[in-house]
Computed example of a mutant assay.
Amino acid sequence: MARHEVWELAGQAVEVKNLDKVFWPEQGYTKGDLLRYYREVAPVLLPYLRGRPLTLVMCPDGIAAGCYYRRKRPDYAPDWLPYVLYNPKTKAGQVPLVLVENEAHLIWLANQAAVEFHVWSSTTRDLAHPTWLMLDLDPGDATGFGAVLEAARFVQGELEKLGLAGWPKTSGGRGLHLLVPLKPGRYTHAEVRTWAKAFAAQLAERSGGLVRLPRGATHRGEGVHVDYAQNGYGRNTVAPYSLRAKPGAPVSTPLGWDEVEAGGFEPTDFNLETVPERIRRQGDLLAGMREAAFRLPEL
């Protein structure tokens, strides 16, 4: 019989159901494992979710049965689940985008089978101006993760020449994300995307073939593509510490630059089982980013 429990979270009673349902068949990880993971990492995850519109990846019957994206707040959501109204270009009228402000909101959504949490680069305080620039280092299908780490080191060096710095995290897939914190209210999404595109072009010119601009919908061959397109109004990035709906239950995990320098690991090393202990040992390696803010120089 499927287990149901009631968890007291942030002053709310949150019912969690079907805890024995298998979500990752190869490892046997269950919905209960999913919920317990998010409850344990909530203290480091919530600072990156609060106030940011979300896109969720929902997997009601586990990752092997198919998943789908959801942005709209469910009509059946409790009245204490917050949202922000958004006017997408593709629809007439406003759409309520779901928000997560506390542990109860997080676990309620995870109980609805939200496996992945993707966030905007701006917050409800000022949706028009992003708080970070994101560079997605995405390897071609003939490129290993070692080249991604090499590319990250190169990109960080080029950022430092401009008086900037990036904070790295795994994507939860084969790539790496670099987040560059920005001065609040300073740049529009379009300005950040334009700067990121120009910077990516410079990287491609200077890297000796290691770094390339993306071409087409898929990244093929050799080299590491610097995808700047995730910078834009309404675009989103998988949140730090979010699980991914992929075999092995990988996690988008913040890294230290010492780890990027040393290498010798794979993104799959950071997963549902290993990340909570890593956080207990190392804390939040992105915490410094929340205290920094940069102006983008002319290129």
Results as ranks from 00 to 15, higher is better:
residue 85 L to Y: 02
residue 226 V to Y: 00
residue 287 A to Q: 12
residue 65 A to Q: 06
residue 137 L to I: 06
residue 208 G to S: 14
residue 63 I to G: 01
residue 93 G to T: 11
residue 97 L to P: 02
residue 44 V to A: 05
residue 81 L to K: 11
residue 144 G to M: 03
residue 209 G to F: 06
residue 219 H to D: 10
residue 246 K to L: 08
residue 299 L to G: 13
residue 138 D to Q: 12
residue 96 P to N: 07
residue 253 T to H: 10
residue 50 R to S: 15
residue 96 P to C: 05
residue 20 D to M: 12
residue 93 G to L: 15
residue 201 A to T: 10
residue 259 E to T: 14
residue 232 G to Y: 00
residue 122 S to D: 05
residue 295 R to Y: 09
residue 236 N to H: 14
residue 270 F to P: 03
residue 210 L to E: 08
residue 62 G to W: 01
residue 73 R to D: 07
residue 99 L to M: 12
residue 20 D to T: 06
residue 121 S to L: 03
residue 15 E to C: 09
residue 25 P to F: 06
residue 117 F to H: 14
residue 92 A to V: 14
residue 64 A to L: 12
residue 299 L to I: 09
residue 76 Y to D: 11
residue 258 D to E: 12
residue 162 L to E: 02
residue 151 A to E: 01
residue 295 R to I: 01
residue 237 T to A: 03
residue 267 P to Q: 06
residue 203 L to I: 04
residue 32 G to K: 04
residue 122 S to F: 05
residue 192 V to F: 09
residue 178 L to K: 03
residue 1 M to E: 13
residue 205 E to C: 13
residue 198 A to Y: 04
residue 219 H to F: 10
residue 206 R to W: 09
residue 5 E to A: 12
residue 106 L to I: 13
residue 148 V to E: 00
residue 95 V to W: 00
residue 126 D to W: 11
residue 113 A to V: 09
residue 10 A to T: 10
residue 95 V to R: 02
residue 85 L to W: 02
residue 230 Q to M: 00
residue 193 R to K: 11
residue 283 G to I: 13
residue 15 E to W: 08
residue 187 Y to A: 07
residue 249 A to K: 07
residue 85 L to D: 07
